[in-house]
Structures are given as structure tokens and as C-alpha cells.
Computed example of a mutant assay.
Amino acid sequence: MPIDVEKVTSAPPVHAPAVWDDREVRLYHLALGAGVPETDPAELRYVYERHERGLQVLPTFGVVAGGGGGVGFQVFDLPGMDIELASVLHGGQEITVHRPLPAAARGTTVTHVPAVHDKGTAAVVVQESTLFDEDGEPLITQRNHIFVRGEGGFGGDRGPSARLPAPDREPDLTAEVPSLRQQALLYRLAGDWNPLHADPATARRAGYDRPILHGLCSFGMAVKTVTDRLLGGDAARVTGCRTRFAGVFFPGETLRLRVWETDDGYRLTATAAERDDAPVLTDARITAAPARAAAPERTAAPERTAPSHEH
């Protein structure tokens, strides 16, 4: 079997550097659709490095910090993971925020596989990765659930249920978030170079009539919307988030979000508005800390003559 469960779950963790600056943060936010309207101070907090309140960072940036396309995907370098990328789907994502992400940092990711679940016709590889700062303090921990078609049936544990249904009542917030036709091409610049998101021929071979948007991009759009509409635009309040990727979303479509406030945070779903509310994100939740006291305005940083690329 291409996945050797015992070998992959007992392998030493993979360590990888993660270095980023505000340029990468701003580019990530632009790839989510931030900056519209371009004169809105709340939007400029995501994309303007000299904003009077400082550049804020969505926690979902942590999964692409350092340009690796996603913290945790180094697991494909582990022994026992001899699989074809074409058989892999990103099934779900969980993020635990230990501390708000800085706009620039040098850090390290440590990734391992705590479990491989047997779903019968497929295997689900659970990747756990923690992003540490230069002082060794954790910033975020994430779990990716990687669905590998054709690799189940090995007699392993099916794993716990990850379902988290939405409440059976009208949502507290419904929001429609437009996307750009070139949004997948922008999001690829965060480091995820899968041609499925850019090459029409690759998309057709996968069964789609055109390239699809990255699931992590649609999830980032959802987290940003909840942050803006329900958390006072304060990304540092987000303490955790999770989702299951239930279906594809095409660049240029409108993401329809339905959000419910619950005792444990916010539940949400996302659908493709133009395709009869076809599911995109399900079993999703965002947890948040209480609102903080207003911070004093800071002095804007001096102008830079050129962006720094020193790592």
C-alpha cells in the first residue's frame, strides 16, 4: 500500500523554516479580496503597512506563512507517504490560535502525522503542524485532513466524526461575498502552485470545466467576513476556526455565508450563490475572545524606498 500507516505515524516530525514580512501578508489579504472599497480604513488595515492602527493579520495567513503553500503540507516528505497528488483532496482544516500572528517573523513549522483513518474507499491522513516564532513560542497549531482516494480498506480505525451541523433556525447573519475571476491566480502567489487552480487542461482532467478556487481561499474569505461583520474588524480576537471542504467554488462566483451565533462561538456554512446554493464549506466554526479595549493609535512607520526581501 502506498501509505504505510505504521511508518508514517511513527516518523520523526518534519522541521521547516517559515519566514515572512508584511508584503506577503498584504498580498495574502488582497488574494482574499481585501481592499474593497480601497478608501475604507477597515479594509486598509489588511493591505496598507502604514495604517495608523497597524497592519492586522488574519489567522488563516498562518497556513501559508513563509510561502510554502500551507503549513503542514511538508508531511508529503515523510517516509511511508508514496501517493499521487492527483488522488489527494483537502478534506478539512482546523486552526488553533495561540497568539496573534505578527506582520513579519522568522519561525519554524514542526509537522507530523498523528493518525491515518480508514474510510473504506479512501484514507484520511491527519497532519498536525505547529508554527513557532523565533523564540520557540507557538503561534498557531493546525490540523489538515487529507482525503486520499483509493487508499482505504486497510482495516484501520474510521476515526471520530467531524460533523458540526448548523443550528436549525434562521442564521443571525447572511452575507454575499463576491470573488474575482482571477482570484485563484492571485491566491497561488501564496505558494500553492497546484495547476488545478490555474490550468484549464488540468481542471478538465479532474472533471471541472475550468480551474477551481483553493478551498483555503474560500475559507479565508469566510473568516475575514465574520471578523469584519461580527468581531469589530479585529482579527486578533479569533482564537480558532475549522471547516470541512464540501464542494468546489469557481473564481468569479459569489460566496453566500450563513452565520449563527452559538454558545461556543459562530457556526457557519458557505454556498455558491449562482449554483443553487451548492455547498462549499460545511461543519464550520469560529471561536473568538471578547472585545478588547481600544488601543491608542500608533505612529505610522517611515516610508520604505523598496520592499525588503531579506530572510
Rank of each mutant, 00 (worst) to 15 (best):
L180K: 00
G54M: 09
G207L: 00
D157Q: 04
R275Y: 14
T282C: 08
K7F: 15
G62L: 12
R158W: 14
H15T: 15
T174M: 01
V259P: 10
A34L: 00
P37V: 11
L32S: 03
V125W: 01
T305Y: 09
A175V: 10
G232F: 15
L180I: 08
D192P: 00
D209T: 00
R242N: 09
G240A: 13
T108G: 05
E128K: 10
A206R: 11
H309W: 12
A291S: 02
A222S: 07
G67F: 13
R298C: 07
Q182R: 15
E84C: 11
L230Q: 06
A201T: 05
P211Y: 01
P2E: 02
E310Q: 06
W193S: 15
D283K: 12
E170W: 02
I95F: 10
T299E: 11
L257V: 11
V25Q: 06
V259G: 03
T109C: 04
L268C: 09
E49L: 04
P171V: 07
R50H: 03
C241H: 10
D209S: 07
D118I: 00
V14D: 03
D234P: 04
A270R: 07
E6L: 12
E151F: 04
A288P: 05
P17G: 11
P171F: 05
V19T: 14
D22N: 13
Q93G: 11
E170F: 05
A162S: 13
K224P: 08
R163Q: 15
Y48N: 02
G120V: 09
P100C: 13
A301V: 03
Y48R: 03
P102Y: 05
A31T: 12
V248T: 08
A198F: 14
T121N: 13
D40Y: 01
M81L: 02
V8K: 15
E176V: 02
D77N: 14
L173V: 03
R99C: 14
H214C: 02
Y187K: 00
A86I: 14
D199I: 00
R26N: 01
V36G: 12
L85K: 10
L44G: 03
R244Y: 13
E151Q: 13
A288N: 13
L27V: 10
P211V: 12
V110L: 03
V75Q: 13
G70H: 04
R149T: 08
T202R: 09
V280R: 06
Q142A: 07
R285G: 10
R292E: 11
A293Y: 03
T287S: 04
T225D: 09
P17V: 15
A201D: 01
V113P: 00
D157E: 05
T60Q: 07
H145A: 05
H98S: 08
V57I: 03
C217G: 07
Q183G: 03
A86D: 15
T227P: 14
D228I: 05
R158K: 10
A288I: 10
R256K: 12
R258Q: 08
F132R: 05
T243V: 14
T9H: 14
D133P: 13
F132T: 09
A18M: 14
T227W: 08
D157P: 09
T239R: 06
G233T: 11
E38W: 15
D4K: 05
V223G: 12
V88E: 10
P296W: 03
A306G: 12
G240L: 10
T39K: 00
R149Y: 12
V75E: 14
V226Q: 06
E128A: 07
E310T: 15
